[in-house]
Amino acid sequence: MSEGLTKSTARNIFFGGTLFFLIVLVALTAHSVSYITKNSTDVAGITPGVAHGKAVWERNSCINCHTLLGEGAYYAPELGNVWARYGGFEDAEAARDGIKHWIKNQPTGIEGRRQMPDFKLSDEELDALVDFFRWVNTIKTQDWPPNEAG
């Protein structure tokens, strides 16, 4: 290390630089909030159903097996695009029924296959969950995931 750098100079660089980068981060975060609410997400589309669906998603800790937009556990499939995978953008009713039917039929009990528990969701909760999946699938994610497999 350069002999010219004293401890107090190093300390001042630390405090000054940290403050600078923190301000940049906060400024970019503020811009991103505005981008999210105006451009990338359908704020008007956050119906009570979508909000309820997010609560169902959280209450059952789905994130600790699945990923959602690539974040979460890696034990079960990505669900950020599950609506598209079930063809929801072409036939919404069939996709809704398909997803609900699939959840209701868990666990499969098939030997050697990863099991999803029976979370005993009511029909209303299932519908809300599907509303949430549909809404998430409309987030503009810079075209991630690369394909339907998620």
């Binding site: 190093a10 660089i13 630390f14 970019l28 811009h31 990338s40 937009l69």
Partner: peptide, 26 residues
């Protein structure tokens, strides 16, 4: 001080590597 400077100067904006695909700007 040098190490923690490097940490925060890179790590604060390094947060951006989690903001690629979640609806945040390009």
């Amino acid at each position: 001080y040098v190490i923690v400077s490097l940490t925060l100067f890179t790590g604060l904006l390094g947060t951006g590597h989690h903001y690629y695909w979640i609806g945040t700007p390009g």
